[in-house]
Simulated assay, not measured.
Amino acid sequence: MPIAADTPLSIGVLARQADVGVETIRYYQRQGLVRAPKKPHGQIRRYDQQDVHRIRFIKSAQRLGFSLKEISELLRLADGAHCAEASQMAERKLHDVRQKLADLTHMEAVLNHLVSACHDPDKRVSCPLIRALESGDA
């Protein structure tokens, strides 16, 4: 049964709705990304749907490769009035992703060559992979 939008949530329910662990929420709180509501004397902290949306925002940004520091900045821009700044951050992240892809493509090519060399039936030398790693040619 769904929980009403205005029903206060325990940290466990918040975690389930945001699809994260309780410790993730606590970590985000320590990092200043998620508020830690006041704890009434003798009771537990209560969260709301805004907290669910904030955690989902954080997780979505992480899936795109943004660091927690970058996400903190994105959260500051989350009112939608700072599109140019958000776009600049996304452009930098896109550049980083493209660089990583180029690096991975290079790694794939080198490994593919070395694996092929290892399986060469005519090889007359020691293992090409080990030799390449030792010489720094990889």
Rank of each mutant, 00 (worst) to 15 (best):
R98M: 04
Y27H: 09
V52W: 12
E134V: 14
A5W: 06
Q88A: 12
R45K: 09
H53D: 00
A36S: 07
D96Q: 12
S10R: 14
P37M: 11
D120V: 03
V20L: 04
E91D: 13
L104N: 12
H106Q: 11
D19N: 10
P8M: 10
K39Y: 03
L74C: 04
G80A: 07
D122G: 02
A36Q: 10
I3M: 07
A86E: 02
E23A: 07
E91H: 15
E70A: 13
L68N: 04
R45S: 01
R46E: 05
A4Q: 05
Y27Q: 04
V115N: 07
C83Q: 14
I71N: 02
C127D: 04
D137S: 12
L114Y: 12
S60P: 01
I130S: 02
D122C: 02
Q17S: 03
A5S: 05
Y47I: 00
I44G: 01
D103R: 15
S72F: 14
H119G: 03
L114R: 13
S10V: 04
T24S: 10
Y47P: 02
L133V: 06
A81T: 05
Q99D: 05
A132W: 08
Q49S: 07
A15S: 01
S135L: 12
L129S: 07
E134T: 07
T105I: 11
S87P: 02
L64T: 07
Q31M: 13
D48M: 11
G21K: 09
D103C: 10
G80S: 07
Y27E: 00
S126T: 07
S126Q: 13
I58F: 13
G21P: 00
A78G: 03
R26F: 12
H113A: 06
L111F: 15
E108W: 15
I130N: 00
M89P: 01
A132K: 06
A61C: 10
R92I: 06
L33T: 02
R30F: 08
R92S: 04
I44M: 15
A90M: 13
Q62T: 08
E73Q: 15
R26Y: 06
L94P: 00
Q17W: 09
D19T: 08
L33W: 09
L74E: 02
D122V: 10
P40K: 13
R131V: 05
A84F: 14
D79P: 01
E70G: 14
D79W: 13
H113C: 06
G65E: 08
R26L: 05
M1G: 09
P128T: 07
T24K: 07
V22S: 03
M107N: 05
G12D: 01
R92V: 01
V22P: 01
D96M: 12
R35E: 03
A86W: 10
Q49L: 08
A15G: 00
P2K: 14
L129P: 00
L14Y: 04
V22H: 02
S72H: 15
I71A: 05
G32D: 02
R30K: 13
L111Y: 14
V97R: 14
L64W: 13
D51L: 10
Q43R: 15
L104S: 09
T105N: 10
L111V: 09
L14I: 03
V97A: 12
A102E: 02
P37Q: 06
S87L: 15
M1S: 01
R54P: 00
T7G: 03
T7R: 15
E91W: 15
Q88E: 08
R35M: 06
P121T: 07
Q99A: 11
R35D: 01
A138I: 08
G42L: 11
M89G: 03
S87G: 07
H41A: 10
Q29I: 04
M107K: 12
